[in-house]
């Protein structure tokens, strides 16, 4: 049988093949990625679209948590100072109600309670970077403003809605309680109770003082409830943050599995491809120039 001695096409094909393997190996080592275009691994590329989306979301959820957490913590500490103020107002009221106080004493207590009222209103108007914490969703307007026509002396300018922030694909956490529920709700208005205590103290009527004090102490409950709500939100956010950290690890691992390269394997492949390539080149250099002419003496 006649043998094809033209090895050029074979050698060229082999060289191209090994060159392309070498290029791929080099690219994998230098980029650290085994998938750079969809055709490298269509299924992995498609999963990467989901992964990119989820990673971006998880990043953003984490950022959301830290920005929301600041507000929640601020609200929580504000409410504890409100509770402290109210407690001292209640003890002042109790002291005033025992009927042994002189009118000058009562008026000094009245001015103390008045200043507590201003503190509580200022606490209720707390804002973080321009956003009022206790205005419901109407967070751009000062929630409580002085209003002489109102029985409590203050008007609530917010609304009774609340915002929820998405911190997971299927988890939204309610991050605020409207001020109407905390400071001026139907079961006992904190601001209203404080105002009537001031009025009662000014009038000097012990029974009125006593009734205003008892209304005030029951109003503390709604503030404590709000405190509980914020504490709950805070712990929910914290545990979600931990979960998201784990999720980030999972997503990164998945990403590595999908498109990453095993460094050791990639390096081995590269050196293998290098060896292959030089072997083919060496073989070609040895084989190609060989013909019978090399061994025949030139015609004399």
């Amino acid at each position: 049988m006649r043998v094809n001695t033209n090895m050029v096409p074979d050698i060229l094909a082999d060289l191209q093949q090994s060159q392309s393997t070498l290029n791929t190996a080099l690219q994998e080592v230098s980029t650290g990625k085994s998938v750079t275009v969809p055709s490298d691994n269509p299924a992995a590329s498609a999963e990467m679209v989901q992964n990119t989306m989820e990673s971006a979301n998880v990043d953003q959820y984490t950022k959301n948590i830290s920005s929301v957490l600041a507000n929640v913590q601020q609200a929580s500490s504000t409410l504890s100072s409100v509770v402290t103020s109210l407690t001292s107002a209640v003890s002042l009221g109790t002291e005033a109600a025992n009927g042994t106080n002189s009118s000058s004493n009562l008026s000094s207590i009245a001015s103390q309670v008045q200043s507590i009222l201003s503190d509580v209103v200022s606490d209720a108007n707390t804002s973080v970077s321009g956003v009022y914490l206790f205005g419901g969703t109407a967070s751009g307007a000062t929630p409580f403003t002085a209003d002489s026509s109102s029985s409590t002396g203050y008007t609530y300018n917010g609304n009774s809605n609340s915002n929820s922030v998405q911190v997971g694909d299927s988890l939204s956490v309610q991050v605020n309680m409207p001020g109407s529920e905390i400071f001026s709700n139907s079961s006992g208005s904190v601001i209203g109770a404080l105002s009537s205590l001031v009025t009662a103290l000014k009038s000097g009527d012990s029974s009125q003082i006593a009734s205003a004090t008892s209304t005030l102490s029951s109003a503390i409950t709604s503030v404590s409830q709000a405190q509980g709500f914020y504490g709950n939100a805070e712990s929910q956010l914290n545990s979600q943050e931990t979960y998201l950290q784990q999720d980030t690890v999972t997503l990164t691992t998945q990403q590595n599995n999908l498109v990453g390269v095993d460094e050791a394997q990639a390096a081995t492949l590269l050196s293998q491809a290098e060896t292959d390539n030089s072997a083919i080149l060496a073989a070609a250099a040895k084989v190609l120039p060989n013909t019978l002419l090399n061994y025949l003496s030139a015609p004399s």
Partner: peptide, 24 residues
């Protein structure tokens, strides 16, 4: 369709993040 930062997968997830940020 490769992940270049300008592809739809990247811009779609950036859009999703921006909405999530808006929520906070």
């Amino acid at each position: 369709f490769s992940s270049t930062g300008e592809d739809i997968a990247s811009t779609l997830s950036a859009f999703s993040s921006s909405l999530s940020q808006l929520s906070a």
